[in-house]
């Protein structure tokens, strides 16, 4: 009961934030909505018992990446977005039915053909830091290391691009 109420609250905040993100005209307001989405997603992870992922979601996404987004928007002093008065006609006609069809199909596939799952009990934490560390450094060691190398290459690429001007 409690978990359903909590899930509905945070899911509503999450979807509301996502819609507000699209509706807002000012980039800062959109960025703030995105932070709300990240925060409520972290709460949903917590409800699923993934405490470590929830904390990391807050620290990395809400605390670091979005700070840089806000930083860049402030630095460039981006103003309000300009929108053309007339939208796309195709989107107006097909938008809502298309969205509904996609949602129904996804829901149907997930409920019928999704992996068999047992519901998580509120208050049981399966995704502890210990368990995730064990998975990363035992079962998924190679993918983990490959990802680290990929990120290292991306950092080096960013440094090279940034230094080109000098």
């Amino acid at each position: 009961m409690l978990e359903t109420v909590l899930f509905l609250i945070f899911a509503a905040i999450c979807v509301g934030g996502a819609i507000n993100l699209l509706a807002q005209k000012h980039p800062i307001s959109s960025a703030l909505s995105l932070i709300v989405v990240m925060g409520s997603l972290a709460m949903v992870y917590l409800l699923l018992g993934a405490e470590f992922v929830a904390a990391v979601q807050i620290i990395i996404y809400a605390g670091a990446i979005m700070v840089l987004f806000v930083f860049v928007i402030m630095l460039l002093n981006a103003g309000e977005e300009e929108r053309s008065a007339t939208g796309s006609r195709v989107a107006m006609v097909l938008g809502v039915p298309g969205l509904l069809a996609a949602a129904v199909t996804t829901g149907w596939v997930l409920t019928r053909h999704g992996p068999a799952s047992t519901p998580v009990v509120l208050g049981e934490f399966h995704g502890s830091a210990h368990a995730i560390g064990r998975l990363l450094f035992h079962e998924f060691l190679l993918p983990f290391e490959v990802t680290s190398v990929l990120i290292l290459v991306a950092i080096m690429g960013a440094v090279v691009l940034a230094r080109r001007g000098e």
């Binding site: 470590f52 929830a54 904390a55 807050i58 620290i59 605390g63 670091a64 700070v67 934490f125 502890s128």
Partner: peptide
């Protein structure tokens, strides 16, 4: 809670 330190770091970064 098991992740007390991480939560403090998260709140500080917010």
């Amino acid at each position: 809670i098991n992740i007390g330190l991480l939560i403090i770091l998260g709140i500080t970064s917010l």
